[in-house]
Design a protein around this nucleic acid. Structure first.
Lengths: 327, 327
DNA sequence: TTGAAAGCGATACCAC
DNA sequence: GTGGTATCGCTTTCAA
């Protein structure tokens, strides 16, 4: 930068002003410097800027599983927004590991990250306090989290939509593949009971920490399920995500259970997979673009507010919708 | 750090030595400092370290499309390796945009990244020279690129494996979905001709810049293809990636073409999708873990070598294999 | 083995 | 408007 300043016949302070877009520079100086910049291809060292200014333009993004098409799409969306706004994104795949989350937080503090976007599927108080103790604002995404800024989707409502759909498809027995403390299931169950379905016609399976389990195992569970299905006239299955719903459909094929005649399936996330299977998959759609945009916006706001903004948290809740297809 | 030094009764230089794991510190000093570190939870500012030492422990990763399960898995693998080795990963989704690639390179130079891993599907001389001009080592992944360090897979060989498989499945007409300049197709075509298949029984469709096109459009193309298939006894279809192969299978369902009786399908990448569809998809497998490990290793090596290592490039070529399933 | 001090490359305050 | 300069937090050379 010194060279540039010398070449332009000004001080390095003025060159800095040109880069920061300060209005305290004469047009002449600005033009001269800009010209030299173009010629030399000079670009300021971001590390030094971070050090001097205290802001890094770095945003950390933590997602539980990029291999899930929902999250990879979300990541892609977030990355685009970050770049568009002049931020650099640092990405981590947490695999739901809270220890790793903790390490990441300290690492990011050490790198002076300006903020963090994190997808948490199972909130625990320890997890939350780690995040609260970060030196930068944090926004939780896809789920509303108490005590943290968040942009989440109402999963309970998603469950209700799924229940209505399967009920209207004349299902008589209802199944949920996932964990029982999932809000999706609570809404699903509640609505079915409201509709007059009896308790014992609502069942849950795959009630484990499935998220990162191997899919072969899931396939087996699905096959067992399909076997039992022979006894029912028409069943409805709601899966925790599209990945498992798609597996259900192929398992149905294997076990000669006709979809949707004998079994209707509803997935969650409305990923690219839905249109890839046959029959196409009905799924609950999370407003992915909105999650990405709103969370980035909220984070930017908190970053601007600085220490004052950290005090009180904001929670944005978005509504899911159902995309009806053949299943 | 000054506080820490004072508390330990040593100079900040010694504290620094403790952090760098230097052997020029007495065990006593080291122990004392370590203890204080634990108590205070202090961790050194990475920005300042980068600035002073000139190495950032930052690695940039550019992939063409994270939404493709192959790349999201690759990303996940690379992320894990980076973290394990104390590096922080900065991720970008290029969508095949060479302008964006150029911007990223300058951005990463400004951030003093130590190295870059980049997935390029279509190499052009301009792209390559941009990468060569970076101030840090670059390793191209998934494809061998002349003039750049690379860890690639032999796509031609993949085409040969696909050809053999479809031939052995008694297909009489052969189709490739993808671009004609793809090495996969060259190998595919060559092997079929060797096997005695005539030119006009080998056809190509979807010969466009498909990669990021909307899938609805691809579905339509597939449907048209299936219609034509009515005239053939047994056809073989080789797709540029699993995403399209899966679409082909569901399109076959829609058009009442029985897989594999009337149509055999081979995908590419051997992604998680293969076991999700019915019938399960035969696919050419790229050794993903090896790509991730070898490329990271090669990059590390080049980083260590410094300027000397940049001079000559290394190309590692890995072989694909075929994973036979029901399709 | 240890400490003092010179950078690393910008920003921003202060005086002119 | 502009220039001088302290400063950000650490690494590393040089002397001791």
């Amino acid at each position: 930068m010194q060279e540039l300043a010398d070449a332009a016949g000004v001080s390095i302070a003025s060159v800095s002003r040109v880069f920061s877009g300060s209005n305290k520079v004469s047009e002449k100086t600005k033009a001269k410097v800009m010209e030299l910049v173009k010629l030399s291809g000079f670009s300021p060292n971001e590390t030094a800027r971070t050090m001097a200014a205290g802001k890094s333009k770095l945003i950390a993004v933590i997602l539980p599983d990029v291999e899930n098409p929902f999250f990879s799409k979300l990541l892609s969306e977030i990355e685009e927004i970050c770049v568009k706004n002049g931020y650099t994104m640092i990405f981590f795949n947490s695999r739901g590991d809270s220890e790793k989350e903790k390490d990441i937080v300290s690492k990011m503090i050490a790198r002076q990250a300006d903020g963090m976007l994190i997808g948490i599927t199972h909130a625990t108080s320890e997890r939350i306090s780690v995040l609260q103790s970060a030196k930068f604002p944090v926004v939780a995404i896809t789920r509303a989290i108490k005590g943290l800024n968040s942009v989440g989707v109402n999963h309970k409502k998603g469950g209700i939509l799924a229940a209505d759909y399967l009920f209207e498809k004349h299902c008589e027995n209802f199944f949920f593949f996932g964990q029982e403390d999932d809000e999706k299931f609570l809404g699903f169950r509640e609505r079915l009971l409201e509709r007059g379905v009896t308790e014992n016609n609502i069942q849950i399976f795959g009630n484990q920490s499935w998220y990162f389990t191997d899919f072969d195992c899931a396939a087996k569970t699905m096959d067992d399920f399909m076997q039992k299905l022979q006894n029912y006239k028409k069943a409805g299955l709601f899966c925790i995500n599209d990945l498992f719903a798609v597996q259900a459909i192929s398992s149905a094929h294997r076990n000669k259970i006709n979809v949707p005649e004998r079994l209707s399936v509803v997935g969650f996330d409305n990923t690219i997979l839905c249109n890839m299977v046959y029959p196409t998959l009905t799924s609950i759609s999370q407003p992915l673009e909105n999650i990405a945009e709103d969370s980035f916006e909220l984070l930017s706001k908190k970053i601007k507010e600085g220490k004052e903004g950290v005090k009180q948290t904001e929670n944005i809740v978005l509504s899911p919708s159902i995309i009806k297809r053949e299943s």
